[in-house]
Design a protein around this nucleic acid. Structure first.
Length: 485
RNA sequence: GGGCCGUUAGCUCAGUAGGUAGAGCACCGGACUUUUAAUCCGGGUGUCGCAGGUUCGAUUCCUGCACGGCUCACCA
């Protein structure tokens, strides 16, 4: 800092010699930049003075006049400063203004000879000194690592990055609007849990000093939200962070945002309906149409969405009957297909792999994949006509898994059996197996209505809607290794 | 965790078949009252990611490490 900012410190001294405070207080705006542009005709005609503020992104000095570009969160506008208007002393202050400085200006709006909408500055206030040079004005900031580590610079320099996060915000807002309009209430459930449940994943551990107990960051809010359904909240949702102690990749961040919602007296069929309506209505609100381009694919959200029965789909694609074939037969067939597998895989794991390898790559447009094996769905109700399958679906869009839903298992006896099965897997070393949650079973013993539940990955949905190939592009501060010395 | 690639000025990037390095923008000094990648004149501001090795000499070659990207694995 000492070297980089040395000249800038000189400028602060110079500013102070003019009696200028380099880090000023409140500035009252009459307009944002976009408001000035929107109101241009009346502002220009009336000659009324506007007050706005932002960061100087470029300065063009012309002796006794200066042009500069002022950027706020709504856009950029040119300002025009003249010595004969401000007077010698005020104008001299502009000699020490740098690109990156924060400035408030007041003046009337006009069009230059070149046709550029411009603020004719009558007065200005120095609001904040920038001590470091901004990245290059033309090429901007491209270094991906720096963009993530110093997201503020990324946001200053790259308007398309700002737009991604504005869209993310609007997306979440529209989801809330939709659910609120349908009578859902939003709740917050524990991030720190005694027993991490609701998903098959490895948790982060932490410790509470006063209680002297180990706690886990939640891997899902599911079991708490369902306790609320037991409590009579018939339509609840939560949009919040989950934490999973797993690898980092272009589609995995250790903390990520999930929407989970539960509707009493529904099931996975009603969840399919709700899911389709939710996402299509949000897409329509955000884009005014049903098609979105993602990584060269045109994704069509027009309902109704395709429904694919998983056992049939896999059988058609691979000849493997995931219900009737023995594990040995499945392995033999997989070998014949040239698919790598491990002897330790059980039926559920095998099905998952078959889905990922053979089905998922073809799921461009929104597709519900239904009827998953119960073994990998320990919290889902089994189908009445075939108890080997769960009343469950996953939603795939653009080859990515976006959502997961099921008819919630509300039979405490069956839930206990499922937990015990998971416990056996855990005993055999499966670190992702679900823990037994006695307190949750007790809640079920009070009676949970038949319920449909749905989870939607907000980050991945945002990726789809912003054409982002990495999850880090839609998370403001993705987890990175700390820099070494 | 494996493989491949990258790391040079504040930023975007060149470059040195081994002799401590350049461009544009930014920045500094000067000129300029309608410019907008302003223009014109002058100025290079650097631990070439870090640590070792080879060498008379390493930013360059070798090894290890760090961080990042892509990818495979893991992973819902």
């Amino acid at each position: 800092m000492e070297i980089v900012a040395h000249e800038k410190y000189e400028k602060i001294r110079e500013l102070q010699s003019f009696g200028i405070e380099p880090y000023n207080g409140r500035f009252e705006k009459t307009h944002t930049v976009s408001a000035i542009r929107a109101e241009e005709p009346s502002l220009v005609a009336s000659g009324v003075r506007v007050r706005t503020a932002g960061r100087l992104m470029a300065i063009r000095r012309h002796g006794k006049a200066i042009f500069a570009d002022l950027q706020d969160y709504t856009g950029r506008i040119q300002i025009y400063v003249r010595r004969d208007i401000l007077g010698d002393e005020r104008f001299a202050v502009f000699r020490v203004v740098d690109v990156g400085d924060l400035l408030g200006v007041e003046g009337e709006v006009f069009r230059t000879h070149a046709g550029e909408l411009t603020i004719f500055v009558r007065d200005f206030v120095f609001l904040g000194k920038c001590l470091r040079p901004l990245p290059e004005k033309w090429h901007g900031l491209k270094d991906v690592e720096v963009r993530y580590r110093k997201r503020y610079l990324d946001l200053i320099m790259n308007p398309e990055v700002r737009e991604i996060f504005v869209l993310r915000s609007r997306l979440i807002q529209e989801i809330r609007n939709f659910l609120d309009s349908r009578g859902f209430i939003e709740v917050e459930t524990p991030m720190m849990q005694i027993i991490p449940g609701g998903a098959l994943a490895r948790p982060f551990r932490t410790f509470h000093n006063a209680l002297g107990i180990e706690l886990y960051l939640r891997i899902a809010p599911e079991l708490f939200l369902k306790r609320l359904v037991v409590g009579g909240f018939e339509k609840v949702y939560e949009i919040n962070r989950n934490f999973r102690n797993e690898g980092i990749s272009v589609r995995h961040n250790p903390e990520f945002t999930m929407l989970e919602l539960y509707e009493a007296y529904g099931n996975y069929e009603t969840m399919m309906q709700l899911c389709e309506e939710l996402i299509t209505s949000v897409v329509l609100k955000l884009f005014g149409k049903y098609t979105v381009t993602y990584q060269g694919m045109t994704i069509d959200f027009t309902p109704p969405w395709r429904r694919l029965m998983l056992p049939e789909a896999i059988s058609k694609k691979t000849g493997i009957d995931i219900l009737e074939d023995s594990l040995e037969t499945m392995q033999a067939k997989a070998k014949a297909l040239g698919m790598a597998f491990e002897e330790t895989w059980d039926r559920g794991k095998f099905v998952n792999e078959l889905l990922e390898r053979f089905i998922q790559p073809e799921l461009i447009h929104p597709t519900f994949v239904l009827d998953y094996p119960v073994e990998i769905s320990p919290l889902a109700k089994a189908k009445k006509d075939d108890p080997r399958l769960a009343e469950r679906f996953e939603l795939f869009i653009g080859r990515e898994e976006i959502g997961n839903a099921y008819s919630e298992l509300n039979d405490p006896f069956e839930q206990r059996r499922r937990f015990e099965e998971q416990a056996r897997k855990r005993a055999k070393g499966d670190l992702e197996a679900h823990s037994i949650d006695e307190d949750y079973i007790e809640a079920l013993e009070y009676g949970m209505p038949p319920t449909g539940g749905l989870g939607i990955g907000i980050d991945r949905l945002t990726m789809l809607l912003t054409n982002s190939s990495s999850i880090r592009e839609v998370i403001l501060f993705p987890l990175l290794r700390p820099l070494g010395d």
